[in-house]
Simulated scan of single mutants.
Amino acid sequence: MTVYDTLLCLYMVSLEVANDCDLEPVAYEFFTQAFVLYEEEIADSKAQVTAIHLIIGTLQRMNIFGVENRDTLTHKATGYSAKLLKKPDQCRAVYACSHLFWVDDQDGIKDGERVLLCLKRALRIANAAQQMANAARGSSGPVTLFVEILNKYIYYFEKGNPQITSATIQGLIELIKTEMQSDSASVLPVSDAFFASTLRYIQFQKQKGGILGEKYDSIKV
């Protein structure tokens, strides 16, 4: 861990304290300095991935920001996430940003439309990552990212996000099946097991019944 990584961690700890003490201007300044540090001093790609996820996770827990300040910070976090060096890292950071727009313990932060925009953006990045893998290997790239995004869709579906419908989930399931059945697909065992586990979970909810089971009833696995 470099001195800058340590400094970023200290900023995040300070942010938690500022949040607990209801010091919005102080917290906003700490975030501003954290973003400056990220942009100017953290150059290693792996360190950037760790740093942006740390920032996203901390911002998700903040409950003192007004609408304008929170929008500014979430915009910055999402923007930096989409600029990470590797496409898979971009994808995972962008879908992590969806949690900035839907926070369970904060009633005022449930923006289903912006959650969906994050997930769609992550899906486009995943598709771009697969196309790059296709060009490099001469075969289809792994579908792990698509399965990860499917699980995010399922999470928000169960949380009651009206923008995430059973039809949307069905479409993503069919997309993944098509990719995995491709003659040239590079299906890693972990991807296959992850997808199978996800489908078993959906089937379990369907069989269990109740309100949640009814939500899943129209989804074919």
Results as ranks from 00 to 15, higher is better:
residue 152 K to F: 01
residue 61 R to Y: 03
residue 116 L to R: 02
residue 112 G to E: 05
residue 65 F to V: 07
residue 14 S to N: 08
residue 64 I to E: 03
residue 43 A to I: 09
residue 182 S to T: 09
residue 145 L to D: 14
residue 25 P to G: 13
residue 187 V to C: 14
residue 36 V to T: 06
residue 113 E to T: 14
residue 60 Q to S: 06
residue 46 K to M: 12
residue 215 K to E: 05
residue 94 V to I: 15
residue 196 A to W: 02
residue 109 I to P: 02
residue 31 F to N: 09
residue 218 S to C: 07
residue 127 N to W: 09
residue 91 C to P: 02
residue 181 Q to K: 11
residue 113 E to L: 13
residue 181 Q to E: 09
residue 107 D to K: 00
residue 216 Y to R: 04
residue 186 S to K: 06
residue 10 L to A: 15
residue 181 Q to A: 15
residue 185 A to N: 11
residue 178 T to D: 07
residue 80 Y to A: 09
residue 34 A to R: 06
residue 42 I to W: 10
residue 154 I to P: 00
residue 107 D to F: 00
residue 125 I to D: 04
residue 155 Y to D: 13
residue 160 G to L: 06
residue 121 R to W: 13
residue 125 I to M: 08
residue 96 A to V: 04
residue 159 K to Q: 11
residue 103 V to A: 04
residue 134 N to Y: 14
residue 38 Y to G: 06
residue 207 Q to C: 05
residue 112 G to I: 07
residue 107 D to S: 04
residue 220 K to D: 09
residue 169 I to K: 01
residue 23 L to I: 09
residue 153 Y to D: 01
residue 2 T to R: 11
residue 209 G to K: 09
residue 110 K to W: 00
residue 111 D to Q: 13
residue 186 S to H: 10
residue 107 D to G: 00
residue 211 I to C: 11
residue 16 E to Y: 05
residue 200 R to E: 13
residue 205 Q to F: 04
residue 20 D to L: 13
residue 64 I to H: 05
residue 152 K to W: 01
residue 69 N to E: 07
residue 218 S to W: 00
residue 208 K to W: 06
residue 69 N to P: 00
residue 166 S to C: 06
residue 136 A to W: 05
residue 88 P to G: 11
